[in-house]
Design a binder for these strands. Structure first.
Lengths: 169, 169
DNA sequence: GAGAAGGATGCTATAGCGTAACAAGTTTCG
DNA sequence: CGAAACTTGTTACGCTATAGCATCCTTCTC
């Protein structure tokens, strides 16, 4: 069953205009790449759009599949290279605990991703918390650790799924 | 070149008595399993010891290799099952960002692992921070998210490597 | 101690995730 | 144009992890 390229996904609010959400993301990406002199090629744009298919984590091989299965279709390195580019520019984040990728809603400010991941509906929410940043910085400073990268992934159940579990598939 | 089963690893303090460190860990594991009625079999004990070979992350396939390469040696499922058991009892943690495993120094209290991982020497330090716990709890509460599991992995350079980079291999 | 039940391990095969290395095409810029 | 840099194509492979079934071992019950 072919899926629309742009659906908000199971975990989205019912009134969420995902079409617009994706357009915004692609627009921001274009602006940002232009400003940096980076080339948002057709392929990279398509991969970004596929990752933005919903507010859920997307696997590299899912992207690969959605790029087309015709002979001469994309191969794994193609996808991984595009994802690497997008990550380098902060347009997508990698979720280590899922081996998957998710679009970043605020790529302008470079930042580490911190995520709330719903096990029930798959919805991924990025958050930022000054307290959390401070806690990690404090801990690092205390032991003289020079921070280069952080992974903060919190899995659980989002409020929507706690009250109304998603319909069975 | 055969490696001693018990070395502290590159990132350890020079005066660290790792022999004793491992003995302690194995002892605690035995006690804890006995109390819970869990069977710390020979295989599981050996895997735990191998993971404790140093204060560094160990890959599942490294454990596999170290278990022996003779014909009839262990196969992947054997190792993964042992690791699953050890994780279920909090004796080892999985590092998502490295696809690797590390011994837990305080398995008695069930807890989420939070780690400082040195990119230079590989040393992994588990830490606990009330502020960090609170920051995550606050964020979750604010959006009605029910936390089930957390991954906090901070990569960077430990103080030892900042002042004296490890000798080249 | 016999027999049953549950747990642990052995084993084959395979799925899933990711990259090395080299070839070919494209864009940019002097 | 021609060189340099970047992007994509392609093959092959390595690493990570699990499904599913067979066998063995421990424990418990009678």
């Amino acid at each position: 069953m072919p899926i629309s390229v742009r659906t908000a996904g199971r975990g989205a609010a019912p009134d969420h205009d995902h079409e617009r959400c994706v357009d915004d993301a692609l627009g921001r990406a274009a602006t940002l790449c232009a400003r940096r002199g980076a080339r948002l090629t057709d392929l990279r744009r398509r991969v970004l759009e596929l990752v933005w298919q919903g507010h859920e984590a997307v696997k590299a091989y899912d992207v690969l599949e959605r790029l087309g299965s015709a002979p001469g279709a994309a191969k794994p390195p193609t996808v991984y290279r595009a994802l690497d580019f997008l990550m380098a520019h902060g347009l997508v984040h990698r979720l280590e605990s899922l081996n998957a990728y998710v679009g970043c809603p605020r790529p302008e400010r470079s930042h580490k991703g911190r995520f709330l991941i719903c096990d029930a509906c798959g919805h991924v929410a990025e958050f930022d918390s000054a307290a959390l940043r401070a806690a990690i910085a404090d801990e690092a400073q205390e032991v003289g650790f020079g921070v280069r990268d952080e992974t903060v992934e919190v899995r659980g159940v989002c409020w929507r799924c706690q009250t109304a579990p998603p319909a069975a598939t």
